[in-house]
Amino acid sequence: MVVLKNLSTEELYAPGHRLCAGCGPSISIRMALKAARGPIAVVNATGCVEVSTTIFPYTAWRIPWVHALFENQAAVASGLEAAYQSLEEKGKRKGKVDIIAVGGDGGTFDIGIQAISGMLERGHDIVYLCYDNEAYMNTGIQRSGATPRGAATTTSPAGKVIPGKRGKKKDFIGICAAHGISYAATASIGFFSDYIDKMKKAIEVDGPAVVHVIAPCPLGWRSNPTETVKLAKMAVLTGLFPIYEVNDGIYKMSMKLGRLLPIEEYFKLQGRFQHLMKPEWKNEVEEIKKDTEKHYKKILRLAGEKIT
């Protein structure tokens, strides 16, 4: 349990970055760094956070930070970890640095997944953090493997015959857990205590750990910037983004929900789902509800919870 009063007031992430007003990913980064136990370094994939925090000559980072490419953060982090180890063994450097590889959902679910898989398989002591805003927002809202069904993006528009994105959101944590790593978790910036706790656990783990955090994007979700945190909570409460941990393969729910919040409540606050509010797509909403329940029940089952 995180007590805000006890969290460090030291800001490793400075203001003056150029992420949008009400940016969820920005909150996710700041919270993640509050979990630091000591020296920390970030390897950042190309994406909103990278682009907006390091526009030369201004950097928002007060810790060692490197950006390489869109899809190679996990590999760059692997190399960095190897360098630290090798130089330490040879007496050329000293001191533990916790390495966090950070990617958005595009850099994680899609183009970067191979390098992440390699990093997990090789067993590097790195935390992989995916801030998920559910599309390629940096390039102007194109769909990704993390975009939920029904969401309109510029490459999965709500058309006359196709109502937004087809296909489900990838089970990224399931993929990570299947590598047999010690710790993987989903989180929401809406539930900061749970999220920061999970980041702390991930950093503590000796070996690879993964945290997947939902971080709404007012621009891409076409939502009110004021409601970023509210939406991050609702994503969890609707069952669309269940939060849980996988400790050495054992699933554990982080929040037990009695009844799921109707997804319409969540949809109606976001422009990307507005088309689904029309009567002709009623059936689509029903299908999304079925999918959501099915996935939610699957996680409950994995966590050994009663299914009601």
Binding site: E11, A14, P15, G16, H17, R18, A21, T53, T54, F56, P57, Y58, T59, A60, W61, R62, I63
Partner: peptide, 21 residues
């Protein structure tokens, strides 16, 4: 600066984003 490296940590504080309001 060599290779575009930013050697001043947190230099973004200089950049005023308050006028975005």
């Amino acid at each position: 600066p060599f290779a575009g490296i930013m050697f001043e940590p947190g230099s973004s504080v200089e950049y005023k984003t308050g006028d975005w309001r």
